[in-house]
Amino acid sequence: MAVNAKTYSQKPVEVERRWVLIDAETAPTLGRLATEIATYLTGKNKVTYTPHTDGGDYVVVINAEKVKVTGNKEEDKMYYRHSGFPGGLKEASLKEVRVKDASMIIEKAVKGMLPKNKLQEERMKRLRVYNGSEHNHVAQKPEKVEVK
């Protein structure tokens, strides 16, 4: 008994993007929040998911400065950058980064969760992170989603 079912492959013109609003204050932890955001950006939550097509949604994250971390990560988790010159390694703890720019914490966590391929940059462009509860995307009518 043969079935003539064919595998669906989404074309770039068939992509329908929606806007999703996530509150970082109500999310359990940074890692769980980042995986959920990465799922929306890649489009894996949709039945039309196709690995080689960027079919993800726009994600707006509010209250980035109130994201939760467990254990001693506030002091122990370090963020590194290098100027390219000898002795140019700079480091900052999560606590220092939270004071300077809390949105960077979520952006770096989400970027680490996304696949390392040609679609990563375009997916990151669809992520909008805000430190407070106000955002500029009211006109897009983002749908509020709870992170489990």
Rank of each mutant, 00 (worst) to 15 (best):
K68G: 01
A34F: 09
T70W: 01
T39L: 14
K73E: 02
E75A: 03
D54N: 05
K46M: 08
G84M: 10
H52R: 08
K44G: 14
T39Q: 11
E91Q: 06
E91R: 10
R32T: 12
S93M: 01
G71L: 02
V60Q: 01
K44D: 08
E36Q: 12
V67L: 02
A27C: 03
V67A: 05
D57M: 08
R81A: 09
G88L: 04
F85R: 07
Y79W: 06
A64R: 04
H82F: 09
Y40M: 03
Y40V: 02
G71A: 04
P28G: 11
T50F: 12
T29C: 04
G43N: 10
K44P: 10
R32N: 15
A34E: 09
S83Y: 08
K90R: 08
Y58E: 07
V60D: 11
L94S: 00
L94I: 01
P51N: 10
K44W: 12
D57P: 07
H82L: 14
D76I: 01
T29W: 11
K77M: 04
A34R: 02
A64K: 12
K90M: 03
T50M: 06
R81L: 00
R32I: 15
Y40D: 05
N72P: 03
A27G: 03
M78V: 10
A92N: 07
Y79I: 01
T39N: 10
S83G: 08
G31H: 02
T70N: 11
G87C: 10
T35Y: 14
I62W: 13
K90A: 03
A38K: 09
Y80N: 00
T42C: 15
P51H: 03
N72G: 12
Y49M: 11
D76E: 15
T35Q: 14
P28A: 05
V67R: 00
L89H: 12
S93V: 02
T39C: 13
K46W: 13
T48K: 07
G84A: 13
L41P: 08
Y49I: 03
G71N: 01
G43A: 06
Y49K: 13
A34W: 05
T50L: 11
Y79E: 02
V47A: 15
E75R: 04
A27V: 05
P51R: 07
K90S: 02
